[in-house]
Amino acid sequence: MAESYDCTECNESLYGQKYILKEDNPFCIKCYEELFSNSCEWCRKLIGCTSKDLSYRDHHWHSECFLCIKCRRSLLDQPFTTKDEMPMCTDCYSNEYSAKCCVCLKTIMPGSKKMEHKGNSWHQSCFICNHCQQPIGTRSFVQRDGNKYCLPCYERQFALQCVHCHKPITTRGVNYRDQPWHKECFVCTGCKQQLAGQRFTSRDDFAYCLACFCNLFAKKCASCTAPISGLGGTRYISFDQRQWHNDCFRCKKCCVSLVGRGFLTCKDDILCPDCGKDL
């Protein structure tokens, strides 16, 4: 007696019927479609065994339902993109969502190279230097009055020249006595350390850091011999062509401060009146 051959799901005989094997189990067409066929995203009907199932990211369509959601044009064998996971032809997507070039005002097509800066977009071929008209690409550039310039053109056209090295200043500039300097060129005349952001002073139009200025030009304290800068409100005592720091102006014997008090001198020493009585 012949062995029966039935549908795995409904147990109906498959002799003389079309059927489909799935993992070695036979199913009649109806059961297979109900159990395993996908629903079309467009018409919501099952995609039967005799229909072509087109899929993209877990979404499925009949081949005749795979259309642009905007213009309803067939996307079979056509390039497409998606919006909210639904297919759109590249023309509709570009018109609706793609950026427009700031120069030619045309759509920048998906997949084409574009340049972006401060919320604006350009075709790569439209992103050019306003002076030499050459594409800027990924090179550095400067914007001025709404125009873009490659660095060589900007430097030739607009950049200030450093009074020290006579080269263009494009970044990190310093203004001193109404003259432009590179930050790295504006240095102490004595020690050559950069002065930008530091306290400094000048003599004969030359800039010095405070340490160099004091060492080179400041008077020396008659007591401690350290320089008296006199800068920034520093107080000092001057007498008989000699100077003292306020804190150094003390009696030679008892070390009491003589600032604002009477005092006596004995050769190079200064004394308070009490210590001076013993002379």
Rank of each mutant, 00 (worst) to 15 (best):
T171F: 04
K183A: 08
S63T: 00
I47R: 01
A2K: 15
F263M: 01
V259Y: 10
R57A: 06
K252F: 15
S125L: 09
K167N: 12
P135Q: 05
F66Q: 01
S63H: 06
F80I: 01
S55N: 07
L21S: 10
C221S: 07
H182C: 12
A159I: 13
R172K: 09
R139F: 02
H166G: 07
D53K: 14
Q241N: 14
K148V: 09
A99N: 07
R144P: 07
F206Y: 13
R203F: 05
T8I: 02
C214Q: 14
C212F: 13
G173D: 10
Y236A: 04
E33K: 02
I228D: 06
C188G: 11
Q161M: 15
R72L: 15
L258I: 10
R172P: 01
H62S: 04
E85Q: 09
P180G: 14
I270D: 01
N95I: 12
N120L: 14
E64K: 06
M115D: 02
Q193R: 14
E9I: 03
K106P: 00
S4N: 14
M88D: 04
Q179L: 13
I69E: 12
S98D: 08
E155F: 03
Y97G: 04
N38I: 00
P168W: 12
K220F: 06
R172F: 13
C129N: 00
I29P: 02
I29C: 03
I108D: 02
S229Y: 03
S121M: 07
P180W: 15
Q179M: 11
R242G: 05
R144D: 04
D247L: 14
C251Y: 11
Y32C: 03
I270Y: 00
